[in-house]
């Protein structure tokens, strides 16, 4: 497969992944320290999907993600500080602490939400693509979803109608092998839960290495180009692995021995380091990128900790277009 990203771009993508990884670790630590309430669904291990795809998209393209969506928010331009502040219930949170970990959104960067009802956002992405087509804007929309979403009806309704209307939408599955605690293969009739469904709608599909940022970027670039040219939707199934459990209450004891270790050997950051070395990038440059990332994360943690909690009065704003929440006269 022709996958070629220049050394300078690749180092930039590596640094983005390093920032996301550091932020996810910080989120984990802050949760254990009691500073993040509710739950978190960490995306450590999935970074290459978000960063590779974002690199291949236009800044004005639309992204819809899931409750495991920290990496997509940051890949599209949400800062680690505003994401961590959101998780920590601070007024500087990217959603003013009204959304939380599962709903990170950065609309100004085309990141149109993280959705916590499995599969619900696939029709939305198709709708955004329909809108782009109606407006002739040349934008594409992308729905990122987990393997668990492949067995819900909304996915099939979206794939069918997106195919019929030839919409500029990409359906990108992050197949991390587990539907929450259950192996996806044990509850799915096909081997590749996303890619194997595409032929039913006459859609092109590819199974790709979701841990290789260059492979993801290449596949998304080709699919987006086809979509912009009127070629319709593409289904991509990116094979990846979540390095933490499903959510904060899951120790992931259901994993067979050795599975985590074999995936850690193919960690997206490790694969990127190998590619950088192949490009002749000096180790010192890689280390410097990691150091910059660590600094960004440390400053983000400090800023989020220092930020004020929300104004309680803000609980009653942002329901209606007038900014308020009045339901009666």
């Amino acid at each position: 497969m022709a996958v070629d990203i220049g050394a300078r771009d690749l180092l930039g993508l590596y640094e983005q992944m390093s920032v996301i990884r550091g932020t996810e670790r910080a989120a984990h630590d802050l949760f254990l320290a009691g500073l993040v309430k509710g739950t978190t669904h960490l995306a450590a291990g999935h970074e290459a999907v978000a960063v590779g795809a974002s690199f291949a998209l236009r800044p004005d393209d639309y992204v819809f993600a899931t409750y495991r969506g920290h990496h997509h928010a940051m890949a599209r331009g949400a800062t680690p500080a505003e994401c961590l502040a959101e998780l920590m219930s601070k007024r500087t949170g990217v959603c003013k602490a009204k959304g939380g970990s599962m709903h990170l959104t950065k609309a100004s960067a085309g990141m149109l939400g993280s959705y916590a009802i499995v599969g619900a956002h696939l029709p939305m992405a198709a709708g955004a693509a329909w809108s782009a087509k109606l407006r002739g804007s040349g934008q594409v929309a992308v729905a990122f979803f987990g393997d668990g979403a492949t067995n819900i009806g909304a996915l099939h309704e979206a794939l069918n109608l997106a195919a019929v209307w030839a919409l500029p939408v990409l359906f990108i599955c992050e197949n991390n092998l587990y539907m929450e605690y259950t192996p996806i293969g044990s509850v799915t009739a096909v081997a590749h839960p996303a890619a194997d469904r595409a032929p039913a709608y006459l859609l092109p599909a590819e199974v790709i290495d979701g841990n290789d940022v260059a492979v993801v970027a290449d596949a998304v670039r080709r699919a987006a180009a086809r979509a912009r040219d009127g070629g319709g939707p593409t289904v991509l199934e990116a094979l990846t692995y979540r390095q933490f459990g499903h959510s904060r209450t899951d120790p992931a004891t259901y994993r067979p021995a050795g599975e985590l270790e074999s995936w850690l050997a193919r960690d997206p950051l490790e694969l990127a380091r190998q590619r950088l070395a192949d490009h002749g990038v000096p180790q010192a440059d890689i280390a410097a990128a990691d150091a910059r990332a660590a600094q960004v994360v440390a400053e983000a943690v400090a800023a989020a900790k220092a930020a004020d909690p929300p104004d309680p009065a803000d609980a009653l704003t942002d329901v209606w277009a007038d900014g308020g929440s009045a339901w009666r006269t």
Binding site: A125, G127, A128, S131, G153, A154, A158
Partner: peptide, 19 residues
Amino acid sequence: PISEQAIVGMAMGAAMTGV
């Protein structure tokens, strides 16, 4: 098609993006 989730879900995505 008879796809109520697609009808309303796509309407939502379109409404969020200028339609």
